[in-house]
């Protein structure tokens, strides 16, 4: 029913000999929260910059809000909100001025800009710091201010490039909570992340990227169902040779992954599997049963962990 806000077909971005984005197809529909998940260098940020109309595609088709970014850049950007990976706030201005000046770039009248700045500062809980300069703010506050700045033009589409990278856990949760509120208000969010928990918290639908390509697509739940088991048992052994235990564990799980510091058993019922491990007296130094996550999906798809 809805025509997609973003539609990409065979989208490619090259920098000289290096292909950062290697032919991806993406559809983002109005009102959804869409994620690009992948490790550093997967091509997420390059994709975001193309969608933000600040980086022309090398090849392929890209339409944003029904327009062509090559021709209609300013028109499209007028309706986007962008929160870049590294904060590029204006350090010579105050918190409030960062919002009001930015609004002027969109041609928003001063009076409206002031009212909206007050509203947004309230929303990101920075009203008390309105007249402070940007530098003394904490990382989390700066990120919230950047998010507020991205909302100043009441965008149809908000792009968030790694919105919580580099933040401490408490600050991350605050950002997530604000983004979730936006989502509830019906704002379309597109975000990149290499945090699984972030993708699971925020995204209705996501694509997993690796090496410039899309390797899987679906909702977090679908992806887990498709590429992993319901539960995971994480075992650590005192010896360095986790691998020798893997052989002994064979047949006890759907799949076994050996990581440098632990062995993962993919099973339907974790407690059963763990009991079986103990019965065979393999005696791990520690054991943990948890639910499968997108981390496991990524490990399955690429054979690598996401954050290293």
């Amino acid at each position: 029913m809805n025509s997609p806000l973003i539609q990409a077909r065979g989208l490619i971005k090259r920098f000289g000999d290096f292909t950062a984005v290697d032919g991806i197809d993406v559809d983002v529909r109005a009102g959804e929260a869409f994620g690009f998940l992948g490790p550093n260098g997967a091509g997420k940020s390059s994709t975001m910059r193309m969608i933000g109309c600040v980086s022309p595609p090398s090849e392929g088709e890209l339409r944003i809000l029904g327009m062509d970014p090559r021709r209609d850049g300013p028109r499209i950007r007028a309706r986007l909100g962008v929160c870049p990976q590294l904060d590029n706030l204006d350090t010579e201005l105050t918190v409030r001025e960062n919002l009001t000046t930015y609004a002027r770039f969109f041609g928003i009248p001063r009076k409206v800009a002031r009212a909206r700045a007050a509203e947004l500062l309230e929303f990101v809980q920075l009203s008390e710091r309105a007249d402070s300069k940007v530098d003394p703010l904490s990382g989390g506050m700066k990120r919230r201010l950047t998010i507020a700045r991205a909302l100043v033009n009441e965008p149809d589409l908000v792009l968030l490039d790694e919105p919580t990278t580099g933040l401490d856990p408490q600050a991350r949760h605050l950002v997530w909570e604000r983004l979730f509120r936006l989502k509830q208000q019906g704002v379309t969010l597109v975000l990149t992340t290499h945090y699984m928990d972030e993708a699971e918290q925020l995204c209705d639908r996501l694509v997993v990227m690796d090496g410039g390509r899309i390797v899987a697509e679906g909702s977090p739940r679908e992806l887990i169902e498709r590429y992993s088991t319901r539960e995971v048992v994480e075992l650590r052994f005192t010896t360095d040779e986790q691998g020798t235990y893997a052989e002994k564990l064979a047949g006890m799980a759907d799949r076994i992954e050996v990581l440098p510091d632990r062995v993962l058993m993919y099973v339907a019922d974790g407690d059963d599997a763990l009991a079986e491990v103990h019965r065979r007296s393999l005696s791990p130094s520690s054991a943990l049963v948890r639910r499968s996550s997108l981390e496991d999906v990524f490990l399955h798809l690429t054979g690598r962990t996401l954050v290293d």
């Binding site: 007028a78 009001t100 002027r104």
Partner: peptide, 27 residues
């Protein structure tokens, strides 16, 4: 949301250039 009139205006490189100068005055 696609058809709602927005407060955002597209007219004029002049106005947008002026907003850049305006930023410097604020700073």
């Amino acid at each position: 949301t696609l058809v709602l009139p927005k407060l955002v205006s597209f007219e004029g490189a002049g106005r947008r250039s002026a907003s850049v100068a305006e930023r410097n005055v604020t700073a």
